[in-house]
Design a binder for these strands. Structure first.
Length: 228
DNA sequence: GACCAGGCACATC
DNA sequence: GATGTGCATGGT
C-alpha cells in the first residue's frame, strides 16, 4: 500500500490553511493578460500600480493599447519594473492578437487549448508560465501554472530535486488532479501564498508551513512519471 | 545598502 | 543542454 502523500493531500493542506484566495485579480480577461505579462519577475503590488495607470488613462483595451505609442506605454507601466521590455512584450502580444484575431480576445479563446498554447509561446516575451497563466486565468482552461514558488516549495519539501523541466513539474503536480479550472486556479494561488508566507528565499522558516510534515513524494514519482 | 519579486530571451560554452 | 546575464521598480 502506498502511504506517500498525493498532490491532493498537498492541496488540502494549503487550502485548509489559507482558504479561498479568489485569484486572479482582474476585472476583464484582457486585464488578466496584461497582468500576466507585467507580473513577470515582479511583485503584484507593483503590477497593480501599472494597471491603475493604464485604467486612469483609459487605455486598458486591446484597441487603445495597440494604438498607443510604445514609449508612452512604457511610462504608464514603469512601476512594474523592466518597463521597456514589458512594453515591447505587450506590443508583441497585441500585434499577434491583431494579426490572428482582429484584436478580439474572445476569438482567441475559441481556439483549442493545445494549439492556443503553442501560438502564445510563439509570441516574443511569452514563455510557459505566462502562456499557462493566460490560459488558466483569462481563458478558464484547466492547465496548471508552475512558477518560482511552486518550484521552491516542492524542492524544499523534496517533492522534486529542482532540475526538472517546466512540463515535468507541472505533470508531477497535476497529472492525477481532476481537470477542474477552479481547482487549478486555487492550487496555483495557494503555492504563491504559501511561498510568500513560509517559503521565502532568504528566510526559510518552514515553521507552521502547511506543507511541512506531509512527507516527500519523491519515492513514488517514478511510478507517476509514465502517465501524463 | 543588499536582497528579492507570480520570467524571458539571448549569448556563450 | 546548462549556465550566466540584462532588463528595473519598489518593498523589506
Amino acid at each position: 500500500m502506498d502511504s506517500a502523500p498525493s498532490t491532493l493531500d498537498l492541496y488540502a493542506r494549503m487550502n485548509a490553511h489559507f482558504g479561498d484566495l479568489g485569484w486572479w485579480p482582474g476585472e476583464t480577461p484582457f486585464e488578466v493578460v496584461v497582468g500576466a505579462i507585467l507580473t513577470q519577475n515582479t511583485v503584484w503590488t507593483n503590477v497593480e500600480k501599472a494597471i491603475a495607470n493604464l485604467k486612469e488613462a483609459r487605455v486598458l483595451t486591446p484597441e487603445r493599447l495597440n494604438a498607443l505609442d510604445e514609449a508612452v506605454l512604457a511610462e504608464f507601466i514603469r512601476p512594474a519594473g523592466y518597463f521597456r521590455v514589458k512594453a515591447r512584450r505587450l506590443k508583441e502580444f497585441l500585434s499577434y492578437l491583431q494579426a490572428h484575431y482582429d484584436l478580439r480576445l474572445e476569438q482567441m479563446f475559441r481556439k483549442e487549448s493545445g494549439q492556443l498554447r503553442e501560438e502564445l509561446l510563439s509570441v516574443h516575451g511569452i514563455g510557459e508560465e505566462t502562456a499557462d497563466s493566460i490560459l488558466l486565468y483569462a481563458g478558464n482552461r484547466p492547465v496548471f501554472v508552475v512558477d518560482a514558488y511552486t518550484r521552491r516549495i516542492l524542492k524544499r519539501h523534496e517533492w522534486i530535486d529542482g532540475s526538472e523541466s517546466y512540463g515535468a513539474v507541472r505533470d508531477t503536480v497535476s497529472c492525477f488532479l481532476p481537470k477542474d479550472v477552479s481547482l487549478f486556479k486555487q492550487y496555483h494561488a495557494l503555492f504563491v501564498q504559501t511561498g510568500k508566507v513560509f517559503c521565502r528565499k532568504a528566510e526559510p522558516r518552514c515553521e507552521g508551513c502547511p506543507v511541512a510534515g506531509l512527507g516527500s513524494r519523491r519515492s513514488v514519482r517514478k511510478g507517476e512519471a509514465g502517465r501524463a
